[in-house]
Computed example of a mutant assay.
Amino acid sequence: MSRADHVAAFLAAVDLTWELANTAPVRDSWSQESSCAGMTVGGLTHHLLNQAGNTARGLQADPRPDEPIPLLAHYESAAWVRADLDDEVNVGIREGDNERALAGPDAVLAAAREDIDALPDLLTRPRDPDTIFIPWQGWALTTEDFLTTRMMEMVVHGDDLASSVGLEAPTYPEGVITPVLGLLTGVAVRRHGQTAVVRALSRPQRAPEVVSAF
Rank of each mutant, 00 (worst) to 15 (best):
N54A: 13
D121W: 07
P120C: 08
R100K: 14
G53T: 13
H74S: 12
E88C: 00
R125F: 03
G92E: 06
E144R: 11
T142N: 02
T148P: 00
L147V: 02
W136P: 00
A56R: 13
R57H: 13
R125V: 10
A110W: 04
G58Y: 06
A107E: 15
T143H: 03
A140G: 09
I69H: 02
L71G: 02
A110I: 08
I69V: 15
D130V: 08
E99N: 07
L72H: 08
A103Q: 13
E88Q: 10
F146C: 10
G104L: 11
G53P: 05
I132G: 04
A78G: 01
A103K: 12
V108L: 10
A83K: 01
F133L: 07
G104N: 10
T124S: 14
T124F: 03
T143Y: 03
W139E: 12
D115A: 13
P129H: 08
L59S: 04
G104M: 07
A79P: 11
H74A: 13
W80K: 00
T149E: 01
L123K: 05
G96N: 05
P126D: 09
W136I: 10
R113Q: 15
Q60A: 12
I93G: 00
Q137M: 14
A118M: 08
T148K: 02
W136E: 12
T55P: 01
I69R: 12
D106C: 02
P105R: 09
P63L: 10
A61M: 13
L71E: 02
E67S: 15
L123R: 06
L109K: 06
D106F: 06
R127V: 07
T143N: 05
L102I: 04
V91Q: 13
R64V: 15
A56P: 05
P68V: 05
E99G: 01
T142P: 01
D97C: 15
D117F: 05
E88R: 06
R82D: 14
L123H: 10
A112S: 15
T55D: 03
Y75A: 03
P68R: 06
M151V: 05
M151L: 08
S77W: 10
V108G: 05
N54H: 12
E67F: 02
D128Q: 14
R57P: 00
T149D: 01
L59N: 04
D130G: 06
G104S: 11
R113N: 12
L119S: 08
L72S: 06
D128F: 07
L147S: 02
I132Y: 06
E95H: 04
E95I: 00
L109M: 14
P68Y: 05
N54P: 00
R94F: 06
P65G: 03
D130F: 09
I134K: 05
